[in-house]
Write a protein that binds this DNA or RNA. Structure first.
Lengths: 125, 125
DNA sequence: TGTCAATATTGAAGCGCATCGATATTTCGT
DNA sequence: ACGAAATATCGATGCGCTTCAATATTGACA
């Protein structure tokens, strides 16, 4: 017997109910992970993260992020805000400038969740 | 001297050019990774991947994917197509039904790329 | 306090995406 | 060949997101 009613017609011999595993992602959790991934799924934001990650001190002044990405200052400011509100980066004001750095734990969490969902990781945590 | 011209005004004492690391993500590579992540950044597609990953046999008949997600059949078909074209899942027709499974290598690649960009992984590969 | 540089916000334009109903296509069994 | 079930495609709708120019806000310093 199938877990659903899709293949129980008179003609088809049933597809044997292939879905029986334990599902951990309810609608809410799926939306939450998708939201985090959506923040990461932008070329400008990915390059911002890389600029932060590859910087010798691990942090970069916002004023040094506009030119290398070839976008306007408001656009960079917008993306930094999106990353900050998703807690994927940290920001700290020091005098005139604001310094940004990657929030490694938050990125790790998103990556781990994605691995769990896709079965790459046996959901150890 | 700064790597850009943003903080070279008369008043500000320069922000010391914090961007000096080696950047591997050019615009094209960033768009490519962002495209893959965009495919993953959808609640329905994440739950589809989990249904495939947690299925005992590792594969699920498409007919068993419509009901548990509460979306219409065209919508599920659309998402399966998106996942398939991104090569994140494999599909195989067996008789009346089509069986889907997670393409673990593709997911692994995307995850590894994300880890590299964010500095979680020392880019070993 | 007033000025200048850095950063944030606003408002609008343009594009892409998720979703559905309706319909077409494919495949099997009779 | 025909009918039924599974899957795919089409067309439309509504929402969200990226981007920019213009403007506001914030903070340092004289």
């Amino acid at each position: 017997m199938s877990t659903s009613e899709c293949c129980d017609g008179a003609e088809a011999p049933d597809c044997a109910g292939s879905v029986t595993g334990v599902v951990t992602l309810d609608e809410v959790a799926a939306v939450k992970l998708a939201t985090a991934l959506k923040v990461l799924a932008d070329p400008v934001r990915l390059r911002l993260l890389e600029l932060l990650a590859t910087s010798p001190g691990g942090e970069v002044c916002a004023c040094d992020l506009v030119e290398p990405l070839g976008r306007s200052q408001p656009t960079i400011s917008h993306h930094l805000k999106v990353l900050r509100e998703a807690e994927l980066i940290n920001s700290e004001r020091r005098g005139t400038w604001i310094w940004y750095s990657v929030n490694r734990d938050a990125v790790r969490q998103a990556v781990a969740a994605l691995q769990t969902v896709t079965g790459l990781h046996p959901a150890l945590a």
